[in-house]
Design a binder for these strands. Sequence first.
DNA 1: TATAATACAAGTATAAGACAGGTCGGCCCT
DNA 2: AGGGCCGACCTGTCTTATACTTGTATTATA
Lengths: 223, 223
Amino acid sequence: MLPSEAVLSSVYEVSRITVRKALEVLREEGHVDSRQGFGWLVVSPPLRQRLGRFSTIEEQLAEMGVHPRRKVLDSEVCESSAEIAQVLGQKEILRVRRVNLADELPFARVTVWIPSSLAKHFSLSDYEESSFYDLLTDRKLLKKPLSKAMQTISAIAISEEDAKLFSVPVGSPALRCLRTTFDSAGDPVLFSEYVFPGHLTEFVIELAGEVTSIAPSGLRLVD
Amino acid sequence: MLPSEAVLSSVYEVSRITVRKALEVLREEGHVDSRQGFGWLVVSPPLRQRLGRFSTIEEQLAEMGVHPRRKVLDSEVCESSAEIAQVLGQKEILRVRRVNLADELPFARVTVWIPSSLAKHFSLSDYEESSFYDLLTDRKLLKKPLSKAMQTISAIAISEEDAKLFSVPVGSPALRCLRTTFDSAGDPVLFSEYVFPGHLTEFVIELAGEVTSIAPSGLRLVD
DNA sequence: TATAATACAAGTATAAGACAGGTCGGCCCT
DNA sequence: AGGGCCGACCTGTCTTATACTTGTATTATA
């Protein structure tokens, strides 16, 4: 519990208004909360966790005691398609397709495209053992750290190949996430596609700051 | 913040007029700005603009010159289901179901739940003419501004009713967004469900700050 | 013509106080 | 020993006063 507003006001020699403004800023940030007639208290850790950044899927699996595994489907160095070339600005790229499993249950099919100049440092077993993030950072292959990303999430009907993989009917709903990851200089470093079966997964997005609409943010119409 | 005009005037031994002229030149150049009764402050770098929030779907439609319209499907005050009661902490709630159209093409079916205490201020035509955000804020029905939201995005197969609405086959993929909106005190104010046909829509999410994984952030497994 | 000096209007943040309503603990009465 | 009441203390909210700010106008001066 915090001292009362009156105490804080006299200790720090500011008015109660000022004390309240400060406390309300802290409340906005989720650090403290108040109850009328009782007082101010620091928010218990569980709430902060709820309001904090969302953990990655790997951390979630680890918490659940589930063993994650990756399986490489295929990998090739090839000329980049028009779309990829435009995003990454590279002519020759490495494309790796993997499946992510949780306790041997496939929950994602992933395709990653990276400039082929980075590919020569990796082997097939690297792709199974490590995430690309770890591969790129641990081996210090990047001049600048990864720092921004843009992802689009859409709903698609699952393809025949993926249907077999996830053991669901062809055409079932799936989440598809296309992601471009940038380094701190703003240059795109890698492009990736994730396909998740709809019955297994969902995205959670927390929006802080001022809300100017109750409609889902980030939505856009595609043509 | 800059020192006040009076301070600058005495420190540099020039008149307030001269100080103001200098500051106004700087304002023209976009380096500083002022607020009456408050003072002068240096303008934050345009970085904020680049990382700015994504526009709402309404703003996008307006930019595209598309005319948005809402149609109310039904509206009733009823006892809240267990799920809604847990989220909103209300026994009696108003449920409004609407369709959003862009140039008469339906692109979203929306259900909004709000405490019935707020419902008495609204009429059916209000729901067609305004967004709930505008209704709640314009009429000053909220003690605290809306400030936080949590939304989960999942892929579902489209229901029979929605299939008719969107003129797509039953079972087509759709994006479903469940959203809880909170006021600045952290209290939940409204709960909403959005269903978007998959072929029309996608979510765009920009992630700033340090990236610690290249996997889609915000993803979680559902049970 | 530009600057200085001055005055005033309007806006902002804080100080100080009062009051309503909620919470809690202790005291009294049964 | 137990239930109910009361008072001290707390937050939530309002009003009023004050000091300081920018915005604007006027007049004097080099």
